[in-house]
């Protein structure tokens, strides 16, 4: 099976004033379809820059990036926008929903871009389907401020899924959530991964990375550790255990 992501000596150099900053120095790796990968590292390690390059938001200054067999490292602004629209789905730390649009309108948005001719009714049906998939089918008409953080992140996941992307990119998806809600989100990611979705996530929390199947550690722009996780944790089981603890504590009282 060909790799979904194939990075060949990717570099990213920022020029600020007279000095050069090497955010990413020659990263070569590949990610197969169906993997659930965590990029880890402290701030300044280059993992966010990697995320921007993987997400076609930014262009590497050196090397080649094959996404789904297509070299996307040389595409211009609008071509990258098209790739983002068709092949990628984003989940951000800060949810990044349009505050004044309903959940359904937020999820519908990716279908409005990218030269596709979908009838609005079909688009809305698909958006509703994606919302149902993340368990929010009954909240479609709520605005972000009427939803909890976990629910907002689930809307964001539905939005990332609605165009059936080849790759789901998550940038610190649990960074703004409490541990319980984080588990719920990770359970959703694991479920999606089990259905065959390829997921690449950036996080600095080892607890969260423990739910993935492969961890890539970065430091000073280089990959320092890249290994599959021996026994990934099961977020659904953890969640159930947490609920059990709460129930037992309540019982003991």
């Amino acid at each position: 099976m060909p790799a979904l992501i194939d990075l060949d000596s990717i570099q990213k150099v920022y020029r600020t004033g007279g000095s050069e900053v090497h955010a990413v120095r020659s990263v070569t790796l590949s990610i197969q379809p169906g993997e659930f990968v965590a990029f880890m590292g402290s701030s300044g390690s280059g993992k966010s820059t990697m995320m921007n390059i993987l997400g076609c938001l930014d262009r590497p200054t050196g090397g080649h990036y094959l996404l789904d067999g297509e070299d996307v490292s040389t595409l211009d602004r609008d071509e990258r926008a098209l790739v983002r629209n068709r092949k990628l789905g984003f989940v951000f730390q800060g949810f990044n929903l349009l505050p004044r649009a309903t959940a359904l309108e937020n999820v519908e948005m990716p279908m409005l871009y990218g030269h596709r001719r979908t009838r609005r009714a079909d688009g809305l049906a698909r958006a509703l389907e994606a919302l149902t998939q993340v368990g929010l089918g009954d909240r479609w008409d709520h605005r972000p401020n009427q939803l909890s953080g976990g629910q907002q992140q689930r809307v964001a996941i539905a939005r990332a899924l609605v165009n059936r992307p080849a790759l789901l990119l998550a940038d610190e998806p649990t960074g703004n959530l409490d541990s319980r809600t984080s588990l719920e989100i990770m359970a959703i990611f694991q479920a999606l991964n089990a259905q065959g979705h390829t997921i690449v996530m950036v996080t600095h929390e080892p607890d969260i990375a423990a739910f993935t199947s492969r961890q890539i550690h970065m430091k000073d722009g280089r990959v320092v550790h890249d290994a599959p996780v021996e026994r990934p944790l099961d977020a659904t089981a953890e969640l159930r255990a947490l609920q059990g603890d709460v129930a037992m504590a309540a019982h003991a009282r």
Partner: peptide, 10 residues
């Protein structure tokens, strides 16, 4: 930014 990220062109 959101619109651009999810695939809006210039």
């Amino acid at each position: 930014g959101i619109r651009l990220a999810i695939g809006a062109q210039g």
